[in-house]
Structures are given as structure tokens and as C-alpha cells.
């Protein structure tokens, strides 16, 4: 049940933009330059990279008991107080690593590719070129938030609820406010491409 919910949440989280606005592609020329399909397919590499980094950090950082408890919690099995405390640490480390990996990809990837956009600006200046350039950054940012802050984060919160001895791993208000830093990437790029 929990695994199924995770799949549903990840799917909605990655494709939520289809719910928020009427994304219409009617012009065949535009479909070749700004293809939503390219964007959706672009989730592949960031998804794999962020998932691998997160799981590796969780596995490397957790104790054997923590790894077993985390896996049991994922499968929906009941866990005791001590196991829950260990699982919480595993999920928290995973969440932090995923968000950090996504932020790194978003900032460095987007800025490097945007540099390419400005290099081409004299011959090919259009919002479409800039949009292509930031696909990687957008994919990475959305993926890291969905996998890290949403899935791994809420797993950490949920397992902590079973542990009386462990402090809640609540993503503190100030820590969540840090997510707003990610807003700087598209903001700066929008200002840069504004006519």
C-alpha cells in the first residue's frame, strides 16, 4: 500500500504542471522546438541520479538495524521504538542528500546551459532556446523536491512518530524556508531572458 502511494505521489508530483494550467501545443513548429515530451523524458537522468545518491547515502549512513527498519517501514510492517529511531535517521539522511543533489544539478546545470544560450544569442535569440537550456535544471529541482522533501521527508516524519525516544525530524520552518532559495534559478533566468 505504501509503495503504491509513493508511486502515485511521485507521478503526480512530476507531472503536476499538467494539472495547473492548460498546456497546449498546437503549432507543429513549436512542437519541434518546445516539446513537452522532451521535458517529461528529461526526468529520466535526474531521477536516476538523485534516487541513486539518496539511497546510497541512506545505506551508507545508516546502521544495519536502521536499514532493516527502514525497509520494514517501507513495506508497512510494524516497527518498535528503537528501530523507528534508527529508520528515521536513514530517511532523514536520504532526504537531505536528495534535496542537495537536486539543488546542485538545478544551479550548476541550468547556469552552464544558460551560458550556452548567451553564447548563441547573436544568432539565435529566443525564449525557446532559453527554455530548452533550463530543462535540466527544472527536471532536477522538481525531482529532488518530490523524491527528497516529499517522499523521503514524510517517511522520516512517519517513522519518527513511532519513536518516543527520537526527537521529531521535523523539517523546521527555517529549513523549509531554505527551499525558497531554489526559486532563485527560474527567477534569475526569467529576468535574464526578459526583452
Amino acid at each position: 500500500m505504501r509503495i503504491l502511494l509513493i508511486i502515485v505521489v511521485v507521478f503526480i508530483g512530476l507531472c503536476h504542471f499538467l494539472l495547473l494550467d492548460d498546456v497546449v501545443e498546437t503549432d507543429p513548429e513549436i512542437q519541434t522546438t518546445f516539446a513537452m515530451g522532451d521535458f517529461i523524458r528529461g526526468f529520466g537522468r535526474p531521477f536516476i541520479m538523485i534516487a541513486v545518491i539518496g539511497v546510497a547515502v541512506g545505506v551508507a549512513g545508516g546502521t544495519p538495524l536502521g536499514r532493516r527498519a527502514a525497509f520494514a517501514f517501507l513495506k508497512g510492517h510494524p516497527i518498535d521504538d528503537v528501530s523507528a529511531a534508527h529508520a528515521t535517521r536513514v530517511f532523514s539522511a536520504t532526504a537531505r542528500a536528495m534535496v542537495a543533489a537536486g539543488a546542485l544539478l538545478a544551479f550548476t546545470g541550468a547556469l552552464v546551459l544558460l551560458g550556452g544560450h548567451f553564447t548563441l544569442r547573436s544568432t539565435q535569440s529566443s525564449p525557446v532556446t532559453a527554455a530548452d537550456a533550463i530543462f535540466l535544471g527544472l527536471n532536477a529541482a522538481i525531482t529532488s523536491l518530490v523524491l527528497g522533501r516529499m517522499v523521503a521527508g514524510v517517511l522520516a516524519e512517519g517513522s519518527a512518530a513511532h519513536a518516543r525516544t527520537a526527537p521529531p525530524p521535523a523539517h523546521a520552518f527555517t529549513a523549509d524556508l531554505g527551499l525558497l532559495v531554489l526559486l532563485a534559478v527560474p527567477t534569475l533566468i526569467t529576468l535574464a531572458i526578459m526583452p
Partner: peptide, 29 residues
């Protein structure tokens, strides 16, 4: 906390829609 994170995720989704809308204007935005 999840609500704030959802807001940030939706920000990126709306940004994609903005780019799509700009592309539909074919450079005349």
C-alpha cells in the same frame, strides 16, 4: 512543511507553463 514544499514544486510547474506560453507566442512576447 509539505504544503510549503508543494508550493515550491508548483512554482516550477507554473514556470514550465510560462515557458510553454512564451513559446506559443513565437518570440513576440
Amino acid at each position: 512543511g509539505l504544503t510549503l514544499a508543494t508550493g515550491v514544486i508548483a512554482f516550477f510547474g507554473t514556470y514550465l507553463n510560462l515557458l510553454s506560453g512564451l513559446a506559443l507566442k513565437s518570440g513576440t512576447a
